[in-house]
Design a protein around this nucleic acid. Structure first.
Length: 649
RNA sequence: GCUGACGUAGCUCAAUUGGCAGAGCACCUGAUUUGUAAUCAGGAGGUCGCGAGUUCGAUUCUCGCCGUCAGCUCCA
């Protein structure tokens, strides 16, 4: 903010030219002074990187950049204006609607309204049509700077705006933007007029609590998106439909992998095909952990005493499935929502030497968390799941090496699926336990370990767990979506609560540190991500069915049966399809089920001991190879867990 | 949990202004013996999510419940 004594502002254009203008000059006048043609193309300006619109008085000196539609930063401006245009249309058709907030968001914008009757899809169509009219009217966005008292008067009928207005400080500039009949309390920035919103689409409507607070009233939110170019809007809509096509709930049904039943909401039933996929993943993790980890199994159901010790009974009970004893409550039990407490019990059951550390307890036990019904969503948010969970007991001096090794482990695992991850380093939160010394040491160890990997990471100050700092792994899938999967968390709290010890070199008891580590997050959610990442076309090693053997006619069924048996004996998941249908029909079905290989056997192949191999997604292109060569090839692909070639869709 | 939408055959979806519930695919049977993405014919398959209510009559209208889906801090 410029000081009031600064009457002349100094603006530097990208080409080095300068403009000295009186404070309060409108940005549009500066742009006009550069060139009238530029003003036509200008959407907004950035002064020292801060985006403001052409109608706003300039208050600071700095680098002055004119933003045209081609500048990515102008898209947020367009979308924010889109929100106003949406509100303009809604107010025309539903004058009773009270306005909430209407910001630009990552993929578009929304606006929240308080209305008696919720919006219907028909309403949405009407709003969209009305928006088109507002756009056609090319209404200029007019900025006014007003006093708080004036604002109170102007928004007397909009209680939500009044609430926001009341929070604004005395020294803040309060501005309104008007387009046609619609006035909104808004700090901007906006496009010059409504005609800029040429390519937009209303997407959905849903309830949203006022200010995200479930104790406040529920507003009706309309989601929409907008782009500068028609092709961009179409591409975005295409991306949305692509995501829907890959939706693991849809693909999972098509490929017959899992199902849900109303009698077990939030808990998946895995079909025989889905179970093969699930187990292939578990087997992979087991193989990776064979040398350095100790796999254990612990009970699923525990007396509440355990949860009182762990603190879950107080803080996490709402999310736990309880089995209550109505008479004495002495036998109150709960299904475990996490593995850690039971691992501590097993650890404590005997004495441990420092020579055993780091001791890595790994498990695939089933966990239950009672998520609220509205939170459930396919496999990505379930009530029953299994993690590739691990608790590592170690000495503080071992943290650095261990974290470095875990980080490589996790990234290597993702790499096997062609997934890339970004690392986030979350440090001490406001409310925490443990001394600052302890935190200093923990954060330093984590940081050193991270630096040692040479990988870039993002800092998330204050985002750590209350018991220790952590590293989170944020994975990007093939259609650009982000998933928070793995985590490495240092824990100094649990060892105290559970009185964990190891015997040191000095023959005295010492406190170990615990590291919580998960890689996939949960297998359920990870499979959902894999389904969408591969669009169901899994690598051979994960495919429930790896080869489908197709005899062309009855006469070759015996040969085909023998070939199938040979493949199965070689550890390949092969199936014979000798049904009484045309070859075309059976190929179509195998393709639909995303089977990686089809092995066709006709007269020529039967006579020469070969197969006509058709590869998934490769169409008519076929390759004739000997049965032995094909088996060797598939075995090799399974052994190396080869990824399918990346195909553009 | 809250707001809204939805729930019809295994799947995808029609229809009924309240009056015997329909298609395609899948499934079964038969014919066809097929050379790289749907051969032909026939058959079977439904407590219209569950439970109440209104009505001569409810899949349809009302209420309750269950489930599914979208969303519920990206700041005027």
């Amino acid at each position: 903010m410029a000081s009031s004594s600064e009457l002349t502002l100094h603006l530097v254009l990208p080409n080095g030219a300068t403009r000295d203008v009186p404070a309060g000059t409108l940005a549009r006048d500066v742009v006009l002074s550069i060139g009238p043609g530029l003003l036509k193309a200008a959407i907004a300006v950035a002064i020292d990187g801060e985006v403001q619109d052409l109608m706003t008085p300039i208050r600071t000196s700095g680098a002055f950049v004119v933003l045209k539609a081609s500048d990515p930063r102008s898209l947020d401006v367009l979308r924010h204006s889109g929100a106003h245009i949406l509100a303009t249309a809604v107010r025309r058709l539903r004058p009773d609607a009270k306005i909430g907030f209407g910001p630009a968001i990552e993929d578009g914008f929304y606006y929240d309204f308080e209305v008696e009757k919720p919006f219907t899809p028909e309403d949405l169509e009407a709003f969209e049509a009305e928006m088109a009219k507002v756009v056609a009217e090319a209404l200029p966005f007019v900025r006014d700077e007003i006093s708080k008292d004036e604002g109170m008067k102007r928004f007397a009928d909009d209680p939500l705006k009044l609430e926001r207005l009341a929070e604004l400080g005395a020294d803040e500039v309060i501005s309104t933007y008007t387009d046609g009949p619609f006035v909104d309390l808004c700090r901007g920035p906006h496009v010059p007029d409504t005609s800029h919103l040429k390519n937009f689409k209303l997407l959905s409507t849903a309830g949203a609590y006022w200010r995200g607070d479930e104790r406040r009233q529920m507003l009706q939110r309309i989601y929409a998106t907008a782009f500068w170019k028609k092709e961009e809007l179409e591409a975005h809509i295409h991306r949305l439909s692509e995501a829907r096509r890959r939706d693991h709930r849809v693909v999972g049904k098509q490929l017959d992998l899992f199902m849900f039943h109303p009698y077990a909401p939030g808990a998946a039933f895995w079909t025989e095909r889905g179970t093969l996929l699930y187990n292939a993943l578990v087997d992979y993790v087991r193989e990776l952990q064979r040398v350095d980890y100790q796999e254990i199994k612990t009970p699923l159901l525990y007396n509440k005493g355990l949860w009182e010790t762990s603190g879950h009974w107080g803080k996490y009970r709402e999310n736990m499935f309880l089995v209550l004893d109505n008479e004495t409550s002495e036998h109150d039990f709960s299904l475990k929502p996490m593995n850690c407490p039971s691992h501590y019990l097993l650890y404590s059951a005997k004495k441990h030497s420092y020579r055993e550390l780091p001791l890595r307890y790994a498990t695939f036990d089933v966990l239950h968390r009672n998520e609220v019904s509205g939170a459930l969503s396919g496999l990505t948010r379930v009530r029953q799941f299994a993690q590739d969970d691990c608790h590592i007991f170690l000495m503080p001096s071992q943290i650095r090496d261990e974290v470095e090794r875990l980080t490589k482990f996790i990234l290597g695992y993702y790499g096997a699926f062609g997934l890339k991850a970004r690392l986030k380093f979350a440090t001490r939160p406001e409310t925490r336990i443990g001394t600052d010394d302890l935190w200093d040491g923990a954060e330093r160890s984590l940081r050193e370990a991270l630096d040692a990997t040479g990988l870039p990471y993002e800092m998330k100050p204050g985002d750590g767990a209350f018991y220790g700092p952590k590293i989170d792994f944020d994975v990007t899938d093939s259609i650009g979506r982000h998933w928070q999967l793995g985590t490495i968390q240092l824990d100094y709290n649990a060892p105290d609560r559970f009185d964990l010890n190891y015997t040191g070199e000095d023959n005295a008891d010492h406190r170990p540190v615990v590291i919580h580590r998960a890689v996939s997050g949960s297998f359920e959610r990870f499979i959902a991500i894999l389904i969408e990442h591969f669009a169901g076309a899994f690598p051979v090693w994960l495919s429930p069915e790896q080869v489908r053997v197709l005899p062309i006619a009855h006469d070759f069924a015996d040969t085909a049966r023998a070939v199938t048996a040979a493949m199965r004996a070689a550890g390949i998941r092969a199936h014979l399809d000798d049904r009484n249908d045309t070859l075309n029909y059976r190929i179509r079905e195998a393709e639909t089920m995303k089977t990686p290989y089809m092995a066709v056997i006709g007269q020529r192949e039967a006579e020469s001991g070969t197969l006509a191999v058709r590869e998934r997604g490769q169409g008519k292109k076929q390759e004739v190879v000997s049965v032995e060569a094909f088996i060797a090839r598939v075995q090799e692909e399974i052994r190396t867990r080869a990824l399918p070639p990346v195909t553009e869709e």
